[in-house]
Structures are given as C-alpha cells and as structure tokens.
Amino acid sequence: MDATIEQSKNFSYSIISYVFFTFIGYFIIGLSLSVLPIFISKGLGFSMLVAGIVISLQYIMTFLMRAYSGKIIDSKGPKPAVLASMISFSFTGLVLIMAYYFRFSPMISLLFLIITRLFTGGAEGMVGASPINWAIMTFGEKYTAKIISYNGVVCYGALALGASLGVTIVKNFNFYGLGILIVILGLIGFFVARTKENKTGKHASEEEQKSFWNVLGKVAPFGLCLALGGLGFATISTFITLYYDYYHWQNGAMCLSVFGILFVAGRLVFSNAINRFGGINVAIASLAVETLGLTIISLSYHPYFALIGAGITGLGFSLIFPALGVMAMKTVPSSNQGSALAGYGLFIDISLGVTGPLIGGVADAFGLPYIFPFSIGIVMLGLALAYYLKMTQSK
C-alpha cells in the first residue's frame, strides 16, 4: 500500500467501508441493551441478578466464539466470519419478537431471551475482530492503531446511538418494531459484505502458526488490564437505566449517549496520542480519567452530574482498547494477528460477561448506590496493573 494513502481523501472512507460491519453489529447490540434489563426485571418480574445474568450470557458466548473467529480469519479471511455474524444478528431479531409475544408467560419469554442473547453473543464474537483484520489486510499493519481507533469510534458510537434509539422504538412500536429493525439491519450487513473482496493473511508454517491458546498467553497481561478497565463501561451500559430508575431520574439511556459522544470525541481528538506517548502511558492516563468519571457518577445527587460523570468515563475509556491493543499485537508475528486480536478482545468480553452477575449481585446484596463505588475499585486495579506493566517494560 502506497505511503501516501493516508493523505488520500478516500482513506477514511475506505476504512469506514470495513468498520461499517462493526457499526451494524454493535448498533444492533445497543438497541436492546438499555431496554432488556427493565423488561426482565419489571416486565417479567425477575430479580436484578437474573437480569444481569441473562444480559451477560451474550458475552459468555462471545468469549467462546472468539477463538473460532480468530482461526477463520487466519485461515480463510475475515469475510466468512462477517457473513455469519450478520445472519446471526438477523436471527436474534426474530427470537426477540417471540420473547415479547410470550411475555404473558415469564419463563417462556425468558427462555427466548436467553436464546437471543446467546446468538447475539455468537454474532458479536464473529464480527468483533473481523472488520479490523479485514482493514489491516487491505491497508497494511502500519495503520493498525488508526484502524483500531476508527473501529472503536463506530463500535461505541453505535452502542450509544442504539441504546437511545432502542428506548424510543420500544416506547412507540414495542419489541415487535425493535425485532423487525434488527432483522433488516442484519440482512443489510450481510448483502453489503457479500459485495466486498475477501482478504487472507500470509500463510505460515505449522511452526510459525501458534495455537490460539499460545497467542492468548502472550496478549493476556494487556487483555487483563483492558478487562479491569472495561468493567466501568459495563456497569454503565448494563445498569445505568436501573440506577436512574432507583433514584426516580428520567432518561437513563442518555448516559450511554453522552458516554458514546465523549468516547468518540476522545478517539478523534487524541488519535495520535498512542504514537506520541506510547501505549502504556496512554492506558495509564485513560484509566485515571475513567476512575474520575465513575467517582462523579457515584457522588451525583442530580442526573445532570451523572451525565457529566458518564461523559468523563467515556473520554477515559476511549483510548484504553487501542493503547493496549497495539502493544498486544506486537507480541506475535503477523501470521497470528487474527488470533491475537481475537484473544485480546476476549478480555473485554470477560469484563462485560462478569459485570452482569457481579454488579447485579452487589446491587441485590447492598443496594444500587453501591455499584459504582465497587466499579471504581475494580478500575483502580486496572490502573495499578497498567503501572506495573510500565515498570516491567522499563527494566
């Protein structure tokens, strides 16, 4: 790829044409993220712990599919993984419609919700690293940080937009309208992906092509730091609507939107920070800012202050994934980058998957006001680990 491509007017558009599939996937995820916890707890009458577990099933399935996705990318290219994910997303819309239809029977409805969360998780696992690798294979490894940053912008921007829009759709068209929209979006993604040329990486020898678990071990220190930092975002995304409802505040989903807006702003404004200051330094600063944002939410006595805290949390979280991801990718040869990115992404899935039952358990045992102080402690562990990694590297 010519060195002048970055200056081309079409460069950003070209990257967007690949991370478009990330947008579709995470927009679909966001659509149900802010409405399902309330539907499960208030509509069906289950506890917050059950709501958290059902939401987290998605991330468990994503965890299981990451390794499979990484192998497909390394051996067959990213296109098959993207196609499979889009079909799976469409299927989740159909099952969501069934869950709402059987709402008069809470157990049957919950069973359909479990199915839709499992298929959503499988779809996320297939699409998570695929667009990034597709773009890297197209433009070259030197654009890895930029591609990861673009992907993160559309990922969390889509989550935030979907969360806000999901509330509006359910309010005006109930879950039938939401399910139909999900089916249509998944099919759009599928047919767009079919028009694009597949890419495959360099074929490595058996000696070079390490097992997924070997690669996972190499990226694990950075992934664990990501997982600890991700719990703050996961607490907001899973429980903020219930947190607002507890205090009788309005528009809890707005926190996700503000989080997403500041997240995107952070990626755009500080896009060169990783190259200038180094991944580990950026990660340390980002985790500190995220901790500050969560502290503001925890101390808030008015929803406006909670919005400010959510925005600062989004700003802090914005660069954690690419900052640590660039470092993780450097630990393996190019022939294993599909598996490396998939393995690294596992840790954010672990974080999101654990958050539901963990924070739900804290809420049931101590009350909703304690969920953000608990999250602050976890994110501070991530900050300590990031500092430890910096000290280790400097020796």
Rank of each mutant, 00 (worst) to 15 (best):
V95Q: 08
Y156K: 02
A99P: 07
G152S: 00
I147H: 05
A158Q: 05
G201P: 14
N198S: 13
V154W: 06
G152T: 00
L94E: 05
K199Q: 15
F191D: 09
L118D: 11
S164I: 11
F173C: 08
I136E: 11
F102W: 02
I184W: 00
I147Q: 02
R117I: 07
W134H: 15
T195P: 02
K199I: 07
S205T: 15
E207F: 02
V192K: 05
V219C: 10
T138I: 03
F102V: 07
I148F: 01
P106G: 10
T195R: 14
R103Q: 14
T138C: 02
L161W: 02
N151Q: 09
F119E: 06
A163K: 09
G152V: 01
I184G: 11
T195Y: 06
L110G: 10
G152E: 00
F190Q: 12
F173V: 11
M137K: 15
V170P: 01
K202C: 00
K196E: 11
F139P: 10
S205R: 09
S205M: 03
R103I: 00
G157E: 04
Y176S: 08
L185A: 11
F212G: 03
G177V: 04
W134T: 02
Q209I: 00
A135N: 04
I184D: 09
M126W: 13
K146G: 00
F104P: 00
K146E: 09
S211K: 05
I132K: 05
F112E: 08
G201N: 14
N198Y: 12
I169F: 11
R117M: 13
L216G: 10
L216P: 09
Y150Q: 08
K199N: 13
G93R: 00
L185C: 06
E206N: 13
G201S: 13
E197S: 13
A123T: 05
T195M: 14
A158I: 07
G121S: 04
T120M: 15
S130H: 03
E141G: 03
N172P: 08
I115S: 12
K202D: 13
